[in-house]
Computed example of a mutant assay.
Amino acid sequence: MSVFAIYALYSLCALAFIELGSCMYTSEDDVHIFDEASFDEELMKSSDYWLVEFYAPWCGHCKKLAPDWKKAAKDLKGTARLGAVDCDVEKALCSKYDVKGFPTIKVFKEGGSSKVEDYNGARDADGIVSFVKQASDGGSNPYSKIVAMPKYTELFNFLYLSPTEKLRKVILFSTGDASTPSWFANLAVKFKQGKTKTAAFAQVREEDAAQSKAAERFGAKFPSIVICHISGEGEGYYTVMSLEEKHSATVKAAQKIIESIATLEEADRSPMPSFPMPDKPRKQADTTFLHLT
């Protein structure tokens, strides 16, 4: 590359830095670059589903995320929109959304500050796309295809019969909102390759005595995660992970335990508790009659 070409590229980047905050994203990408004015005008009044990255151009993790963020933005065209805010330039905007580390990703559902959630899922293009597609299913549980919502009487089936008896089983005992937290759904995505699951995930809410009884069987409190290694019907062991904060550190810690559950020391695990077996339909009496002659 000639000296002139290098200078031209440098000048272009310098100009982009002045106008857009940095050269991490440009107008040629499918990532919308926000300043404070455009954020209020274009996102907050939008009816679209947005994921916005708050980043710093000097941040190594942000640089690593950038190619995946661009790819996810391209793959999600028509489904969701991805944006970016340079916190070195838009300090007030980043402070408004309590950005304390980089990159921080926020989910804006149909615009509006009242519908903002932290995104704590996978930081790669496939994980981001999977998160959005699961969320776009809608319904009271937008992650119903990847996170089951069994009742107490259905836990036996979840643990030992469905979808595959010897899969690792992960249960979130949650409080508050009835919906599945995005960070837990994205933890589930990490154990799904195409249509194949290597672990099955469920959520049990603290809503009635029966659901609380399920937590008591495991000696778990709300909120917490129970991770099970199933070796057969009614057989296996489990461990309990208490929850203090629902952020990326929680996802990473839970992922590590799920991956190593089969090799846990005896002191760190407990035998599976018993759960009521589902009622089996009674065998109907034979209605065939003999015709005597």
Rank of each mutant, 00 (worst) to 15 (best):
M1I: 01
M1A: 15
S2I: 04
A5T: 02
A5P: 00
I6T: 11
Y7P: 10
Y7R: 09
L12I: 05
A14K: 08
A14Q: 13
A14P: 12
E19A: 11
G21Q: 02
S22Y: 02
S22Q: 00
C23S: 11
C23Q: 07
M24A: 00
T26A: 09
E28K: 08
D30M: 08
D30K: 10
V31E: 03
I33S: 04
I33L: 06
D35R: 10
A37F: 02
F39C: 13
E42Q: 13
M44S: 12
S46C: 03
S46V: 04
V52Y: 02
V52L: 01
C62N: 03
K64V: 15
P67W: 14
D68H: 11
K74D: 09
K74F: 02
D75T: 11
T79V: 03
T79A: 13
R81T: 07
L82I: 11
G83A: 09
C87R: 10
C87L: 04
V89P: 06
A92P: 05
C94I: 10
K96M: 12
K96V: 02
Y97T: 12
Y97L: 03
D98C: 13
V99F: 02
G101Q: 09
G101I: 09
T104L: 02
G111N: 13
G112Y: 00
G112S: 08
S113F: 02
S113R: 14
V116L: 08
Y119T: 07
G127D: 06
I128M: 15
V129T: 04
S130I: 00
F131R: 10
A135T: 11
A135C: 01
G138L: 07
G139M: 09
N141V: 09
I146V: 04
V147N: 13
A148R: 10
A148I: 04
M149T: 05
T153P: 07
N157F: 03
F158N: 01
L159S: 06
P163N: 08
A178I: 14
S179H: 05
W183R: 00
L187G: 03
F191E: 11
K192Y: 06
K192M: 04
Q193G: 02
G194D: 03
K195W: 00
A200C: 08
F201K: 01
A202T: 15
Q203P: 07
E206L: 08
D208E: 09
A209C: 01
A210H: 00
E216T: 14
G219H: 11
G219E: 12
F222G: 02
F222Y: 03
S224G: 05
S224K: 01
I225K: 14
H229Y: 06
E233D: 12
Y238I: 09
T239I: 02
V240K: 01
V240R: 12
V240L: 07
S242T: 13
E244C: 10
E244H: 12
K246C: 13
S248L: 05
T250L: 15
A253Y: 08
K256I: 06
E259A: 04
A262S: 13
T263D: 15
E266N: 15
D268R: 14
R269G: 12
M272I: 08
M277A: 14
D279N: 01
K280V: 05
K280P: 05
P281W: 10
Q284Y: 07
Q284K: 13
A285D: 15
A285V: 07
F289K: 09
H291E: 13
T293S: 08
